[in-house]
Structure formats: structure tokens, C-alpha cells
Design a binder for these strands. Structure first.
Lengths: 206, 206
DNA sequence: GCATCGATATATCGATTCGATATATCGTGT
DNA sequence: ACACGATATATCGAATCGATATATCGATGC
């Protein structure tokens, strides 16, 4: 799971641990607060497996991450100039990783696997599903749709036991949320289909 | 977290592991698929800590869990009669646990703690917040509201980096979901307030 | 009767993840 | 000069997961 996320980000460009964590927390937000205690071990795992490797920063990365958008003050400019001079910002031995071919293969495999994803896994895969071919992507979204539909069906028959008031509220809210999710996925699917038809038509007319 | 959930359920009545897992998965649903690999160790932890203890089933439990609502056929009745005769269904050495005073104290403490809950923790606490006094319950709900409001504010300023199409969709959906959650909590809070006022009025008139 | 299947039930293992903590550097504000 | 907050990596023990093993029971089919 973490490995998929890490490989997905590193496939774009080399990054270091802190940066990976920031990106992922920004995007996955409250759904998954990744901790360094899992991230750094994961990086070492991936490195041992030959999926990623340490790279020289500044070589490949045009945006050195920590640029921070200086406040525009004179001091800010000076600081930026100093940064540029030193070439390597290097806050406490920064270690950037890049993805290898082996890693790319691994990523493709993890992204393609058709298991019954939980909320997190779905979110992570969605984040990278732009790298799937249209057919696989549609299948991925359809799987999610089926899953949510199934969940709604299960929610339909309320448990026979006595339900506390707050429990009932939670259950009802969950059902509404699932419906909300379902509409969202349905929209995504509709868009995908529209585009695929569009592509075909263009292809035929060309 | 698991401890809070287990103690909360056992405070109602004695239960065994499998049953606990079923109840929790039913209610927390996709948010938290508790595994036996965490449940059984948790039970032993709690037992070691003197928060729960093995109890004789059938002694306290009027509903033997596995009642299953017989199909109404003759065979079903016979099976039920056999069950009743044997008194102890006992599928593979079933171990039921009951809560102790120590456990009740622990539960109260876990439920009352005012940390910044994640989604799971909030759901679990909500499940049991009926056992909080009205003031503490309102405070709990208000904390959640503040948290969600804060999250919306954070979502407001979109990252400066380039965002992939699916990432954007995910982000937008997350914001909508948070709004949805916020409305829900606001409703719960409104209800609480209405009732507290109602109680005060009744008390004054009595 | 008997075989088999699915639900019930507990247990354990290795691997993953979490949460807290330690440490260090850098830029900024005072 | 100093403190502070953001950046950055690392590690530890504990909690959790996911898979697997094992056993019993009731129901279904032959």
C-alpha cells in the first residue's frame, strides 16, 4: 500500500522522504496520515528490492522542493541566492530516491491488481489511475462501483438487534455517504466513457 | 482504540471474541475491518490488565448469540430444542468475557479523553457517547465540528503544484464529504441542545 | 447414515504500520 | 545572541493486519 504510493510519486520525479510524506498527507488527507515510522522502513525495503535508488538531487529535480516561495523581501531574495549558490540545500543529509525499471514494473503490477480495495487503497490507486490504459481504468472504476453498490445492499437490511440512537445516526450517515460516493464514481465512469467514444470517433474520422 | 470498542461492547453484556468482531464490523463497517489478529491479543491484554474476565456463558447472557432465527421448519424447532437442552452451545470452546469495575473505569477514561480523533476513533466514541453526560457529549460533538471546520479551511487553499485530473476529483470529493459530515454533526449538536433545553424546562416546571 | 459445506469460533505468525521520541539543520524573527 | 518553527532522517516498541491452521456445529443433498 505504502509501496504503491511511494512508487507512484517517484515515477514522476525523484523525491526524499519528507517530501513524499508531505505530498501524500496533502492528498490523502485525513484518510491516511502516513507516519515516518512506516515511510522510512518502506523506503529501505524498496531500495533493498531494487525498486528505487538514491540519486543526486539537483541533477534531475528542477524544483528543489524546499523552495518555499520566498516572501519577496530582500532577505528572502538573499536566502534564495545563497540556496542557489550552494546548489545543494541539504538540510540534514537529505536523501532523494529515484525509481528504477524494476520499480516501474512493480508499480504497474501493484496498480493493476484486482483485489477488493478498502477506502485507502482505492484512493491511492485513483491518484495514479491516470497511468492506466483507458480500458483498465474503466474496469477499476467499475469494480469500485460494484463494491459500493454491494455495500448499499448490505446496509439495506438493518440489524435485528436494538440500536442505540447514536449508532443509528452513524449507520444512516454511512449509508448516505456511500450513496454520495457512488454518485461520484458514476460521474467519473460517465466521463471516461464519453471520452473513449470521443477518441474512437476522432480516430475513425482521422 | 480497539480496547475502547471492546470495553464499550462488554459494558452492555458479556460477549465472546467472534461476537465482538461481528458487532463491530457491522457497525463500523468499511471504516474499520477489525481482524482477529488484533482482537484476540487485545482481549488477552485487557484480561491481563484486569479490565475484563472470562465469565460463564448462559449465566448472564439471555440471548446466546447464535440463535440465528430458525427457519421456522420442524427441523429448525428440533435444533432449537436441542440447543436449549444442552444449555451450552459451545462451538469450539467459546470464551465469553465480562467487564470488571476496573474495566469500566478504563472505558470511562478512554471515552472522555480529548485528543484529536481520527475518523475511526470518532466513530467508535460516537457509538458509545450515549454513556457520556450531556455536557461532555456536547463538548465531544463540538470538538468534532471544530476539527471538520478546520479541515475545510485547510482544503480551501489548493496546493500550488500541478494537479492531475483524478487527484483533483478526489480532492473535490473529499471537500464535499467533509461538508456533508459537518452538516451531520451540526444536526446532532442541534438535537442535543434542543433536548438539554427541554430537560431544563421540564425540571424547572416539576 | 454420511459426506460436505458454510457459519461459528479461537489461535498464531510474520509483516506492516503507528505513535512517540531523538536528533540535527536552516531560516526567521526578536 | 537566542529561540522557534519548518525541514529532515532515524529508531523503538506496540498495535494492527492479513493469511493461515484448526475445530465444531447445523444444514443440505444424496
Amino acid at each position: 500500500m505504502l509501496e504503491l504510493a511511494v512508487l507512484g510519486l517517484l515515477a514522476e520525479q525523484p523525491r526524499h522522504g519528507y517530501d513524499l510524506k508531505k505530498r501524500l498527507s496533502e492528498t490523502l488527507g485525513p484518510l491516511w496520515g502516513i507516519s515516518f515510522g512506516s515511510l522510512y522502513p518502506a523506503l529501505r525495503r524498496l531500495e533493498r528490492a531494487g525498486a528505487i535508488e538514491a540519486v543526486d538531487e539537483s541533477a534531475t529535480a528542477p524544483t528543489p522542493t524546499g523552495t518555499h516561495v520566498p516572501t519577496g523581501s530582500l532577505k528572502g531574495d538573499l536566502a534564495a541566492a545563497r540556496m542557489r549558490l550552494r546548489a545543494r540545500p541539504s538540510r540534514r543529509t537529505r536523501r532523494a530516491y529515484g525509481i528504477t525499471d524494476r520499480g516501474r514494473a512493480m508499480f504497474a503490477e501493484l496498480l493493476t491488481d484486482e483485489s477488493d480495495d478498502d477506502e485507502r487503497e482505492f484512493a491511492v490507486k485513483l491518484l495514479f489511475c491516470g497511468r492506466l490504459d483507458p480500458v483498465a481504468r474503466l474496469a477499476f472504476l467499475e469494480r469500485r462501483r460494484a463494491q459500493l453498490t454491494q455495500r448499499l445492499v448490505a446496509d439495506r437490511k438493518p440489524a435485528n438487534r436494538t440500536i442505540d440512537r447514536y449508532t443509528r445516526s452513524l449507520l444512516e450517515h454511512r449509508t448516505r455517504s456511500t450513496q454520495h460516493d457512488l454518485e461520484w464514481i458514476a460521474d467519473l465512469i460517465a466521463q471516461e466513457r464519453a471520452e473513449q467514444i470521443g477518441d474512437r470517433t476522432e480516430g475513425a474520422s482521422a
